[in-house]
């Protein structure tokens, strides 16, 4: 029997959060953590968590599993369970709405702040804008972000200043547009980032890289933004 310890909090009935213990019979199968949660929800339907695609592309089910952020649907028990014990907590650093559901408003606000859309002030051609395969390759490792917030909520700098530091996810997207040969708003984008918080709160801790379920590297993207800022301002 797998011992599962889950963070519980229902603001309507609980004055404070607590950890609830469950036992799950996995019958020796190496299930995904999400499968275990579904089994638990059948035992206790009041358990709240988000999920959608169950294949690691929608980014709904970011969670803290045995101390490390990840997506429950693509994390096998064998990757996280230690001593037959699984501890599930909500993503750290964001307000808890209920149980494992966090309020992601601040995370989305930071995403919106970097103007996450192509800006191009030239008239659009009748067909597509051309882009060489080499220029397109520059977007690889950037556009794949699924906004699961695993990285930003693993980042101490984001914990301290979630209202001011854009965070690894938002900055990865900021660089996705800076790196796009079709975007013409580089200067405008950079001028919005050149304050002591937005980019420069990154201390290179690299928790973001360690937890990203898509294997992306926000720290490298942040480094590239700094290089652009430097090149632009000196």
């Amino acid at each position: 029997m797998l011992q599962v310890s889950i963070y519980r909090y229902n603001p309507e009935t609980d004055s404070a959060p607590y950890m609830q213990e469950f036992q799950v019979d996995t019958q020796g199968r190496d299930l995904m953590v999400l499968n275990v949660m579904e089994m638990l929800k059948e035992q206790d339907s009041s358990l709240a968590y988000r999920r959608s695609c169950r294949e690691g592309v929608c980014g709904s089910d970011g969670m803290n599993m045995n101390g490390k952020n990840g997506l429950t649907c693509v994390t096998a028990l064998s990757e996280v369970v230690k001593d037959n014990k699984l501890v599930l907590r909500p993503l750290p650093g964001l307000p808890v709405v209920r149980d494992l559901v966090v309020d992601m408003s601040l995370f989305y606000k930071q995403y919106e702040r970097i103007q996450p859309y192509l800006l191009n002030d030239t008239p659009a051609p009748a067909i597509e804008r051309l882009q060489s395969p080499e220029d397109r390759d520059k977007l690889d490792g950037l556009y794949e972000c699924i906004l699961c917030a695993c990285c930003s909520t693993a980042c101490p700098s984001f914990w301290w200043n979630p209202d001011k530091f854009v965070g690894p996810s938002g900055l990865l997207q900021a660089y996705r547009f800076l790196a796009d040969s079709r975007d013409t708003a580089t200067e405008e984008r950079l001028s919005e980032l050149d304050d002591p918080f937005s980019v420069f709160r990154c201390r290179g801790i690299m928790n973001c890289v360690a937890v990203c379920p898509k294997g992306l590297n926000p720290t490298r993207a942040i480094g590239k933004i700094r290089e652009l800022l430097l090149a632009n301002a000196t």
Binding site: D195, P196, S198, V199, F200, R226, L229, L230, A233
Partner: peptide, 8 residues
Amino acid sequence: RSGLSDWV
């Protein structure tokens, strides 16, 4: 007032 110059 600039993150970049602080950083440099």
